[in-house]
């Protein structure tokens, strides 16, 4: 996982003096270069590769074989791009992504917002590992939501698609309440600090002309922080990749595919391989 790109900052809010952080257990500093652009250095003070995309600064400790993924939908005109702000969580970066891929928890963790009893059923949906792009995709996911987004006026059955283009990044495409024919783009970019500590950097590209930027930021922070107390209380802290320790059901097909894909690629930073 050294050869992956990871988010380490918001491009528009780089600190004036370099801020210390961790990436895969190694100390890094994030700040500005002389020209004003982003600069990330490792523990020895060497400049690491950087790129700016989706409002965030990305870096790597290795030599990535390919460019960072793209999100073509996010380039559509009329979208508002939202830097949600980072939240640190004492959990495996992989557990943070897996939770983002899960809908069955909505009625219990995001009650009356993303779900509500008795609408708990998860209907069958489709999951595949796309060989051409080497990404995990879940499609035809549907769920009843009391308040699907800041822009939603009331309860609607929302259509979802999930995409995992990198081991600690996930993209959610969901019905845009003001434009039912289009997908809102909501991402969870995760910076793995250690195997049991991470920072999430959610980012969104939404069709919403009514809400203020702060409203949209707060809605997504609210959702994520509702998840945080769950993520910090899962045992074991690392994501088990071998079957046996945790029991999935059909509603967990995305998680099953994600774990399988992680294992196949050896993306095991933050994973537990042998059932304890």
């Amino acid at each position: 996982m050294r050869h992956q790109w990871y988010p380490v900052g918001i491009a528009a809010k780089l600190p004036d003096s370099p801020a210390e952080s961790l990436l895969l257990g190694e100390r890094v500093h994030i700040g500005r270069a002389k020209g004003g652009g982003p600069q990330v250095t490792d523990a020895k003070g060497r400049a690491l590769p950087v790129l700016t995309r989706f409002g965030h600064v990305w870096t790597t400790l290795g030599t990535p074989e390919r460019d960072l993924f793209t999100i073509p939908e996010a380039d559509q005109p009329g979208r508002r791009l939202v830097d949600v702000g980072t939240v640190r969580v004492r959990c495996s970066p992989l557990r943070a992504v897996e939770n983002f891929l899960d809908i069955a928890h909505f009625p219990f963790v995001h009650t009356d917002i993303l779900g509500a009893e008795p609408h708990t059923e998860v209907e069958r949906y489709e999951v595949e590992i796309r060989e051409d792009s080497d990404e995990v995709w879940a499609t035809k996911v549907r769920f009843f939501q009391p308040q699907a987004a800041k822009s939603a006026g009331g309860g609607i059955t929302t259509d979802y698609m999930y995409r995992v283009p990198a081991p600690t990044c996930s993209i959610l495409y969901k019905t845009s309440p003001p434009r039912p024919g289009e997908w809102d783009v909501i991402t969870l970019f995760v910076q793995p600090m250690t195997e049991e500590l991470c920072q999430v950097w959610p980012w969104m590209a939404l069709f919403d002309d009514a809400s203020t930027m702060t409203d949209m930021i707060h809605f997504q922070q609210m959702i994520f922080v509702q998840d945080r107390s769950i993520l910090e209380n899962q045992i074991p802290a690392k994501l088990p990749l071998d079957p046996g320790l945790e029991i999935p059901t059909r509603a967990d097909m995305t998680s099953i595919a994600y774990r399988r894909w992680l294992k196949r690629h050896g993306y095991t930073y933050g994973a537990q391989l042998v059932a304890a």
Partner: peptide
């Protein structure tokens, strides 16, 4: 609290809300 899986007195799972 996570997915509402319900367990009876013996520890046996008796309901999975995602699959009523």
């Amino acid at each position: 609290i996570y997915h509402g899986w319900r367990y009876g007195q013996t520890g046996q799972c008796i309901k999975i809300p995602a699959h009523p």
